[in-house]
Design a protein around this nucleic acid. Structure first.
Lengths: 192, 192
DNA sequence: GGGTCAACCAAGCAAGCGCTAGTGTAAATT
DNA sequence: AATTTACACTAGCGCTTGCTTGGTTGACCC
């Protein structure tokens, strides 16, 4: 019923929606549940979002955009060595999981619930993020830091990292830094 | 309304359900869709399964049990070297993805839709499978084939492998064997 | 040849779903 | 002072959902 603006109100609602989507899954989160969490009535929700789908899109867009920003910043601030850049990307990835965990869990689990247009739009964002990774991995390959098929190595690393949302406990003894170090050590075969 | 038997009929229905769950997701697959795919009416479905939840449980149970059987067989048939055993586990994992892909995709994506009792029951099966992996990784660590924290290495490897369901194309140029070789090469740092 | 039983069907219920229509109201804008 | 905007409300429509009910069919068994 309204515009797709970027009001702070909408950002906050998106954040709350992400939490519910994680807890119950997108399909089982009703607009009434969302409204209650937001402290409004279900009808009022459609003032901020065209429909339920748009809430899902907003959640994933927010998370992916933040990941992209953080990763770019990390690459700019670190050393130029292939190893340092690899490490910076891994650490950035894991740090994003700390700050935007809900959004990323939703992105991983509910991607298929997006309608085709939204998926198309968001996949460009995701591709941009993955392109960063592939660049860094190419550099590591060129530097002789790692070996193998660039496509496969990239997929394996992304898999290992994305899988962390299923077991990583921010309150546990391991920091994102620890994990990043260990992962890079594993694939470069250098002692931690 | 009926028993939880292991009739071949039920196995076939379970297989068909898995396909629909992959295509549409568990929540969006209605009992009417399931019945139509099975060539029966929606009411008849409840002769074979107590409720919709039980179909999901059956799908995941079937897939996990097969994975466990295949992995055990692979370990028994391969050489005793740590590297061979690592390779055998990776290949077995990827071969299961070929034969039982639907069930495994469902297990990955719809796990959270299980009710607590089913989740408890199935997590024991999954733990048994992961225990196999941890054994093999411990052996590889003891043999000096790989290095690092056993917990983290196991999680990273499981992540890299499980992530393959999101991108691996069985019709593509790479066989499960190729992937297994490349993964083991990556973490042991030996040329392919 | 009566009894059993798995397998199926037609019909429908109660609940819940996403979303809409129409209205109220306080603050901002003109 | 008049108008617009932003945000919220109430009430409920039209539809789908998982599941139940009560009954039929045909193959097999002693």
């Amino acid at each position: 019923m309204n515009v797709m603006n970027d009001s702070p109100r909408r950002k906050e609602l998106t954040r709350q929606a992400a939490q519910l989507f994680v807890q119950a899954g997108f399909d089982r989160t009703t607009v009434r549940m969302l409204a209650q969490e937001m402290g409004i009535k279900s009808g009022s929700l459609f003032h901020h979002f065209r429909d339920k789908q748009e809430i899902l899109t907003a959640v994933i867009e927010e998370g992916t955009q933040n990941a992209l920003i953080i990763a770019k910043a990390a690459l700019e601030q670190c050393d130029n060595s292939a190893e340092a850049r690899l490490q910076a990307m891994a650490r950035a990835h894991l740090e994003t999981l700390l700050t935007d965990r809900n959004a990323h869990v939703v992105a991983l689990y509910e991607w298929r619930r997006l309608d085709p247009e939204a998926r198309d739009h968001l996949s460009h964002l995701r591709d941009a993020y993955e392109a960063l990774w592939e660049t860094v991995i190419d550099e590591a390959l060129a530097a002789g830091l790692i070996h193998g098929d660039r496509f496969l190595v990239a997929r394996f690393v992304m898999g290992a990292l994305n899988w962390t949302v299923r077991w990583y406990d921010p309150a546990g003894p391991r920091s994102p830094d620890d994990l990043a170090l260990e992962l890079v050590a594993m694939i470069t075969h250098r002692p931690v």
